[in-house]
Amino acid sequence: MNEKKEKEYANVKIPTALAKKIKKRIEGTEFTSISSYVTYILGEILSDAEEKTEETFTKEDEEKVKNRLRALGYLD
């Protein structure tokens, strides 16, 4: 993707109530707009979905980590 393409945007509609919630959540953070936060979150979700097809941090890994953290006193 060239630089020009990367700067292209599309509009997405979200419910006003959700937009208000997001606005409140990003107050005082590095996210300067609702769009930047929504872009970040959607990117995370898509990235997670893509990773599920690769060898990654599985639910089984997570359970092993949590058990170890409990044994070390880092988690109840």
């Binding site: 953070t29 590095e30 996210f31 930047s36 970040y40 990117g43 995370e44 990235s47 990773e51 060898e55 990654t56 941090f57 599985t58 089984e60 890994d61 997570e62 092993k64 980590v65 170890r68």
Partner: peptide
């Protein structure tokens, strides 16, 4: 070996997650 695999996976996942954050 299983524990090692899980902690390596955790480390990689977390680094990827924080590297992608714009607020960090």
């Amino acid at each position: 070996e299983d524990t090692k695999k899980s902690f390596i996976a955790l480390n990689n996942m977390i680094k990827k997650k924080i590297n992608n954050r714009k607020d960090t």
